[in-house]
Design a protein around this nucleic acid. Sequence first.
DNA 1: AATAAATGTTAAACTAGTTTAACATCATTT
DNA 2: AAATGATGTTAAACTAGTTTAACATTTATT
Lengths: 194, 194
Amino acid sequence: MKEQPLLNYIKNYISLTEEEEEILLSKISYKKYLKGQYLVQQGDVCKHEYFILSGCTKTFYMDNEGQEHIILFAIEDWWTSDMGSFIAQKPADYNVQCIENTELIQISYEANEELYIQIPKLERFFRKIVERALVASQKRIVRNFSMSAKERYLIFRKNYPKIEQRIPQYMVASYLGITKEFLSKIKSQLILEQ
Amino acid sequence: MKEQPLLNYIKNYISLTEEEEEILLSKISYKKYLKGQYLVQQGDVCKHEYFILSGCTKTFYMDNEGQEHIILFAIEDWWTSDMGSFIAQKPADYNVQCIENTELIQISYEANEELYIQIPKLERFFRKIVERALVASQKRIVRNFSMSAKERYLIFRKNYPKIEQRIPQYMVASYLGITKEFLSKIKSQLILEQ
DNA sequence: AATAAATGTTAAACTAGTTTAACATCATTT
DNA sequence: AAATGATGTTAAACTAGTTTAACATTTATT
């Protein structure tokens, strides 16, 4: 029963009857992606939202100079997608790419709409998920404005210890909004300070 | 019928029966605040969410050096609050202050919870509102990373022409994440370029 | 084991944005 | 009309973070 983790996760927010669980399981699909594969590509319409079972993805924006800006990482038990594209079914602004082999559950736009009708309680579930994501996103804006790169790096390390060990440093730098060279400098400073 | 703008706004997302409209109106309250008054203060639990009828508010974080960092402005037909504090009923990270005399509708945490039970359709409404807010918040993160202060200022001017004329420049600077002196420099550069 | 590809480091020259400080303008109160 | 406080400007000195470029280390491939 590979979908179990999703049901467990949902149970933290709402309770589902057995019948509702069945409906839910009938509407989702389990998939495996390889490291490097894209779940969403900038310009395409994002057709699914994804719940990660194992592995890791990055969501990034590629600017006109060809520079990657990482908006978020997602690991086990996280949701990912290009929400702007998914909710409006318009071309995506961002890419979502697997940076490890990744197992996930995907829900299509149509299945998601049907689920909201058949299990209205899911509106509440997704509302809460999105509320939390918004709070985190606003916190990040404030941190970027009020803290130095070094402070942001220390917070990242504290908040996401599991992620840092799994991804290359240049991606951490991109997530922090600095160059890899500068992150390297910060790290050597931190070692000297100890 | 001062609550009408809220009903009209909600009708863009979901349809309500007359009975539901009455329940809704019975749970909300209409208020007037003066320029300078606070709707939420950092450290207090945020007890309401606010729908602005007229006027303008700013939501800001005050850092340890006493510097203000503006997270968002809200004008007519916008929602505002400290969402992290409101949803968890925990002390607020941010302040929300009126920068003009402001008329608004406020919904208390308890009323909001009761409304979700009595009118489950509102889950859908608020889910959609929060989804949009999250998309906007993520876009702002990307802009802060991938664009210069001048570019961000031009976009702000384009996106919020109505707001720029109503607020002092030093608040625009704070919203853009730069000093007022640097915004002044950008503006004089833009005049020379014309 | 050797090679190539990807990732990480160091340092010098540079630049976008900050800090400080003095002054200018505008709005509000007396 | 003068005075006060709030907002905006200018410029010089500074700094956090970037750019460029050369080299080092790790990981994956043959």
